[in-house]
Amino acid sequence: MAWFRKDGTERGAAASDTDVHPLQQVSDLDRALADRQALIQMCLYALDRARSGGVVERLEEGLAAIGVQALRPVGERFDPARHEAGGAVPTEDPALDGIVAETEVTGFADHDRLLRAPVVTVYAKKNP
């Protein structure tokens, strides 16, 4: 089967990359990146609704394989730039004040870019 360029001239079966217009390559890359983001968002939507621990685990493994990590910051110091406070747990231990006690809603990061902050419960020093 013969292949033809846009100008009507025949080209060989093994087309070189020089036959692809640079703007088409950019458009293809933009489309692939947009498709990736849409798939990630669909996976996060499915994770929020999954009732099976096995399904959640498999979706998180698949996302991790492409660089999207689940964020469960239990034991970390609360950081309002990376965490969303959902509640507080009183504590008498001053060392726990401001530490994440529980992750209410798992957060996600795509490499270094935060996609969704985890919603957390934070230890707060009990008032006397």
Rank of each mutant, 00 (worst) to 15 (best):
A64S: 14
Y45D: 15
K126G: 00
P73V: 10
A13P: 03
A32K: 02
D110I: 03
R36D: 13
R36W: 02
P80A: 08
V74D: 04
R11C: 10
M1E: 01
H21D: 12
D17S: 08
V120K: 10
D30M: 08
L39A: 13
V120Q: 07
R77D: 03
R49G: 07
V100C: 07
R82V: 03
Q37D: 15
G54E: 13
A13E: 06
G67E: 11
F4M: 11
V55H: 01
I99F: 04
D19L: 12
L63K: 00
L59R: 00
L59Y: 07
L115Q: 11
L114C: 10
A124D: 01
A32Y: 00
G62E: 10
A88C: 03
E84L: 14
F78N: 06
A101F: 09
G98V: 11
C43L: 10
V20E: 02
P80H: 11
E102F: 12
L33C: 05
A117G: 03
R36I: 02
L59K: 00
Q25H: 01
K125A: 08
R31H: 04
R51F: 01
N127E: 09
I40N: 09
P22R: 06
D48A: 15
I99H: 06
E102V: 11
L33S: 08
D79K: 10
H111C: 05
D97V: 00
A95V: 01
G67L: 12
T91G: 06
A124N: 00
F4N: 06
